[in-house]
Nucleic acid binder design. Structure first.
Ligand code: SF4
Ligand code: SF4
Lengths: 141, 141
DNA sequence: TTTAAATACTACCTAAAGGTAGAATTAATC
DNA sequence: GATTAATTCTACCTTTAGGTAGTATTTAAA
């Protein structure tokens, strides 16, 4: 019951980048080094973040990555969607669609309402927290 | 962000068994059939549920599985522990131990407190809901 | 006592996530 | 223009979760 490591890497990468407000752009070698993420795996993730429209890449010597969207405009949820890690609205704790709890009120299990509540809290957190928000407090990373 | 399908299968199996109060025991073929779980995979899970002490198995002809523990004594959390799917107390949204948010109050990210809240709700739900609870309401399955 | 119907064990197969390697492309600097 | 430092593309490797196959073991019933 946790996010995929790819999603977690992506969030950390974007958070770190957002903290370097002064620097215009930053390259993959530095990111891999400072975040302890395997270089080759990181570049793969970076390309996805570029394709998703969060970043632009500057190719060639002295290249790197920079924000395309404002970090305040990138919600955690948006990142999770890219890596298929978001909690779907109709998602059930026990697997989707094996009962009609989502449609028919009478046929729901005892977990249903509790899960709906938890789900809402999580979704709200992911949808309302932006990358900028994560970088605000004086955290180690 | 969801439970493993093994955990979800296990919960469904135990719930279904708990609903059949009248029948003393039930066999794998029936369970696989009615729950649409691959027979061979189900028997693998059943053995784990037996080893975990939730069920006893009756081998040989006319055999099957029956509860060893009361279904009211089996919490969802107990099942998740068996399949390494429980949310750890110190578990972080972004991966364990990459910052000191859990130890040092000043160095926590903006997600930290929100995640702590969600985590508590989820843990409470899993720790307080028993298999019996799930079977109570008039659900399809 | 044989047979049939059940679980248990061992080993393997498949798909997906996580991770790596190397060459192609791009563009600033020398 | 050549070199160098960067991203991108294609392909592959490794590990783990999910799933299968076959055989051994157990036991009630015939
Ligand atoms: S009633 Fe239970 S099983 Fe059905 S959708 Fe809701 S949580 Fe899932
Ligand atoms: S502060 Fe943030 S990153 Fe650190 S443990 Fe808490 S949630 Fe995780």
């Amino acid at each position: 019951m946790q996010l995929s490591s790819t999603s977690r890497y992506a969030i950390r990468i974007l958070s770190y980048m957002a903290k370097q407000k002064d620097t215009q752009h930053i390259n993959a070698t530095v990111l891999a080094e400072v975040l302890s993420i395997p270089y080759k795996f990181l570049t793969k993730i970076m390309t996805e973040l570029v394709n998703a429209g969060f970043l632009i890449s500057i190719r060639g010597r002295e290249g790197g990555y920079a924000f395309l969207k404002e970090s305040s405009e990138i919600k955690i949820h948006d990142i999770l969607v890219v890596f298929n890690d978001a909690i779907e609205d109709k998602q059930c704790v026990l697997g989707i669609g094996f009962c009609k709890g989502n449609d028919i009120k009478e046929k729901k299990c005892a977990l249903h309402d509790q899960w709906e509540d938890s789900k809402e809290v999580l979704q709200k957190m992911f949808k309302e927290s932006s990358i900028e928000d994560i970088t605000k407090e004086g955290i180690k990373l």
